[in-house]
Amino acid sequence: MKPAPFDYYAPTSLSEALDKLTELGYSGKVLAGGQSLIPAMNFRMARPTALVDLGKVKELSYIKPTADGGMAIGTMTRDSVVEEDLLVSERFPILVKTIKHIAHKQIRNRGTFGGAIAHADPAAQLPAAALLLDANLKVLSKAGERWVKAVDFFIGPFMTVLEPEELLAEVVLPPLAPRTGASYQQVSRQKGGYAQAAVISTVTLDGADRVKEARVALFSVGEYPLLASKPNQVLAGQVPTAEAIEEIAAYVAKNECDPGTDIHGTEEYRRNLVHVLVRRALTEAVQQAKK
């Protein structure tokens, strides 16, 4: 239950951190809040050769409103800081609701917003929230910057398009359109525990209560967070009826997720959860949008 030895670097600036990552290449790994990585290291499931701790890189910790009504969040911003930020709760109430489901207070006090996204745990909330909210991810290396959409970022369990010399520096959330409702739904064995299946959704309505856009992100039911395509295909331009939502929920559970079987539940059970949770999530998001 003790981690294996590793080399440790604690740069105090972003440029120093990027230099170190380039120098270390495949043997380097970024340490952000450590709330997923360190347990994995304690079990020796993870044995990085060298860690580059971003804890002292103060310039990566901030929450800034963007001019278009969105938010830009620095990668090292603690989850609890995002959770308690007034502007975040005004512009993205669904994000606050989602963060409250991440483990427990003690972990949200240390875990970081960008760290959780870069870690890409298929059962984690923030990768799915990034996907749902169509986040733009600013990726930096010594060679420069590139921007990756959340939908292109995740490629497998704990795998992203980040190269060893790169780090995720900032998460930009585009504004939610007016008349957007949202919902977070999960089933887990206890509060703060891993979800057996979870669904986050947003629905945007026009002036005549027809759907402009319906987005549904699923997690804990595949190798990485999934954005379902059926909801928008069926609902766009339509008044969302209970029948249409039921049809979508059944389709998504059957065709747009890939849950596994473990001691907590079978694949069949998890597909059933997806069916129920997608129905609840879309129903609640529509109600919220009408408010």
Binding site: N42, S80, I107, R110
Partner: peptide
């Protein structure tokens, strides 16, 4: 659980070097 700069945290999932 301990407090780090006033905020609760698990001391088993942090390295001592991180709280320098």
């Amino acid at each position: 659980t301990v407090l780090i700069d006033g905020h609760s945290a698990r001391s088993c999932t942090l390295f001592a070097v991180m709280v320098d």
